[in-house]
Design a binder for these strands. Structure first.
Lengths: 255, 255
DNA sequence: ACTCGTGCTTCCATTGGGTGGAAGCCGCGC
DNA sequence: GCGCGGCTTCCACCCAATGGAAGCACGAGT
């Protein structure tokens, strides 16, 4: 995640606590006291005191080598988030059925700001290795699930994305006009494809998961090697799984 | 989780922020402002201010009906915890293989204080419904995975548990002597069983997952209907999966 | 063995962010 | 129309937070 906390880090203690926690991200999961002080822009002694309280509450824990990690209590709190309980847990059985049927990476993502956020990924030994994991933000314009989410996003967000399309691979679509056509095709076809636009040698296909009001609440996708050129044949299975998830999410909320 | 924060809630702002977050638990995932003020024992205006900062940082979010939920940023932070990245994600493929082979609930748990903490559960439509989910604490003495963890726990912890064995079902072992024998059998056999001790009509079998130093870092189990009396036949498959997870966790840490 | 640099821990005089009761607003039920 | 409960905002007062400095521990280099 971006250092958004730097934006809100002010003189308040709560903001400082959050700045300390924001020091951790996808590529920084083990940090020393000095690391955290630097990244949160707080004095050493302040950082030390705040970490002591976070450690006491098990929001972080300190390994024998002195490095801090996110603690079990934050993990547990995280499991209470709607994205985990009302989406991920409900979606897991259908995702597994899809994995068994296809033996490929099965991905579930939601819109988060101007990124796609992986909620879950199921893969096996034979699946193409993909550098993704739950919690990780990914570009909307370069991934299958991202294109689905973007195609059904509010116009304001679409404009914001289209105004700063960046190349991830040489195949990534960065021309605004071409991306508009691509998103129109996604809406028309009811699925999105990505060919080596995010990762060389990798292709993806994704479909929307709707809520009862017809809004897109997530995207479900498959990620494969480009050798499998016939990805469109997976669309019916993806749609069945997406419909199952859709229905179960609605029941879950009502229950 | 228990209201542990009540223990640490003092005059410090950090403690208060954590008390607010601690208001959420397994059975309270949607809370009003007044709910949170009551549960954290803070005045309404203090609670209101702290929640505003948490909301600004997306640690919590507020639904249209005014209820607060755990926000996406806390979910993302939670995904950085070692239990998630170094255990759960590494274990998932092997757990799925086990699920495919058995079509039963596959569970992964770690020791957390004096409880077993579910890290992940894989199940399908045909699996016996089990009220468990990631993040949820469960008794050590009544579950398969719990007995494995208890059998290999430090003597101090074992004593603490044996001194307050409580009945969960009429089959739960609460006699200290009998539980000692049970744990000795678990160590001798290399697996644990539970027959309707946690849930009527439900049986479980579990094996340990070792770290390179030979310590138990987690337990892997299957949960089935008691109709399947021949659970011991699953032990070889459980051990294979556990060994795979063991190896992969070691490689993951080294990498 | 000694020196140096780095990381970390602890202290405490000073200060400014936090406090929480009260007042007021809003929505709902009777 | 009234009463009640939940929520939001205000502000005089106060105490928790601050962060530089001093000191400790440790590892590397000589």
């Amino acid at each position: 995640m971006t250092k958004a906390a730097a934006v809100v880090c002010g003189p308040s203690v709560a903001a400082r606590v959050l700045a300390v926690l924001s020091s951790f991200d996808e590529t920084h999961t083990a940090l020393t006291l000095s690391d955290i002080a630097r990244r949160s822009k707080l004095p050493l002694s302040t950082t030390h005191r705040l970490l002591a309280e976070l450690e006491r509450w098990q929001a972080v824990d300190r390994a024998e080598d002195g490095a801090y990690h996110i603690g079990r209590r934050l993990w547990q709190l995280g499991t209470l988030a709607p994205v985990q309980r009302e989406l991920r847990e409900v979606a897991l059985p259908a995702m597994q059925d899809l994995f068994v049927a296809t033996q490929e990476n099965v991905t579930l993502a939601v819109l988060s700001g101007t990124s796609a956020l992986y909620v879950e990924r199921i893969h096996g030994k034979a699946s193409v290795p993909v550098e993704s994991r739950p919690g990780r933000p990914l570009p909307l314009h370069a991934t299958g699930v991202g294109k689905v989410l973007l195609a059904h996003a509010q116009p304001g967000l679409v404009d914001a994305c289209l105004s700063k399309l960046t190349k991830v691979t040489s195949f990534t679509i960065v021309d605004r006009e071409r991306m508009c056509c691509e998103l129109a095709a996604v809406r028309r076809n009811g699925y999105a494809r990505s060919f080596e636009e995010m990762t060389p040698g990798v292709a993806a296909i994704a479909v929307p998961i709707f809520d009862p009001e017809g809004r897109v609440l997530a995207a479900l996708g498959l990620v494969t090697r480009i050798l499998r050129k016939d990805l469109v044949k997976f669309v019916p299975a993806l749609r069945v799984a997406a419909a199952t998830i859709s229905r179960n999410v609605s029941h879950h909320r009502a229950g």
